[in-house]
Simulated scan of single mutants.
Amino acid sequence: MKSFFCSIFSLLLLLGCANNHYTNRKNIVFQPVEPAANILYSFNDFWNYWSDTVRLSERFIALDTNNIIITKEKFLTKLLSGKYLPLRLQANNNDSPYYKLYKLDTSINKDIPSTIVDLTMVYNHLFQMQGQVLPDFHFVDLNGEIYDAETCKGKIVVLNFWFIHCASCLQEMPQLNKLVLKYKDRKDIVFVSLALDNAAQLKSFLSKNKFNYAVVPDMSKYMYDIIQINTFPTHIILDRNSRVVYTPEDYQELFLELKKQITLDKEISRY
């Protein structure tokens, strides 16, 4: 997971810098989606940029300050120093997202670097989970169904972390319901949601609101203490060996990454 930055890109992206544009020897032009000066003009400008543009959970090509490709792990580590902005770049002939480390000036609003650190900590924690077996899981849903390493062996598991009063969680539920229906005939793909709320609260909520995931109550200890997730909603995709393969930020990314995992499984099964 941490090595998806292909070596071919290292050969192609020997970038130069001029007037907020970055051009390599193959005439691929990269331009910031927003000039850094505009992003850093005020905290509100920064926050709007981050909320609308930054998706550090996605698969992206990371560049250092000298426009050299680095790993995603190193990129996130640099952001944790509070000295850099992840500046998103647009390429004129490539759909892959690019982010460049942009060195922050000490004169900017002090809330900006501290916020970058706080937000990056969330992404970095989820990123570090990738490739690891989901720890100590034994989930029992409202219908008494058990989900653990044994019952989920050989299955792709899609996890959703939420709670009843999370507006963003509720907003995406109709789309998550569509995803479950799309794969309803696949017995090898299961959708499980872990909620902070207790069983009585969830049953009352679900009597008025449809949610096609299996719903597991009282998961605050597991989320907060064991896997240390405290942002909602959060999504995790597990492979057939209960390893975390991806941690999508939202349902759009979840749809895309689940499809990729299914395709990958098909390719592996050929050998």
Rank of each mutant, 00 (worst) to 15 (best):
D111P: 00
N124H: 12
S242K: 05
M1F: 07
L179S: 01
S51P: 00
H165C: 12
L202Q: 01
D225S: 15
F205I: 06
V216S: 00
V33Q: 02
L256W: 11
L206S: 06
A18M: 13
T106H: 08
C17L: 11
S51H: 05
N177C: 13
F43E: 13
D265P: 01
T263Q: 13
K203N: 05
S269D: 04
R270A: 09
N241H: 10
L159W: 04
K221H: 14
L101V: 03
D64Q: 08
H235W: 13
L56F: 06
N143W: 12
Q261F: 02
I189R: 00
W47G: 02
N124M: 12
Y49I: 01
P217S: 00
T263S: 09
L80G: 01
K208L: 15
H235E: 08
P97M: 14
K83H: 14
L179Q: 06
S81L: 13
L13W: 07
Q201M: 08
E145F: 14
Q130N: 09
F60D: 08
I68V: 10
I268N: 09
G131N: 09
Y99T: 00
V157P: 02
Q90A: 12
R59G: 11
T77A: 09
R55Y: 11
I61G: 02
P113H: 02
E58Q: 12
M1E: 10
T23D: 08
L238I: 06
I146P: 05
K259Q: 15
R243A: 09
P32N: 04
D225V: 14
Y147R: 03
R240I: 15
K260Y: 10
L142I: 12
M121R: 15
I164P: 05
D188V: 06
L134T: 00
Y99A: 00
H21E: 12
M223N: 10
F255A: 08
W162T: 05
Y213W: 12
Q90I: 10
S81T: 15
K203P: 01
L176V: 08
Y183G: 06
G144E: 13
D197W: 00
N230Q: 11
I226P: 04
T115V: 03
T234N: 07
K100L: 04
K2I: 02
D185T: 10
W162P: 03
K266W: 04
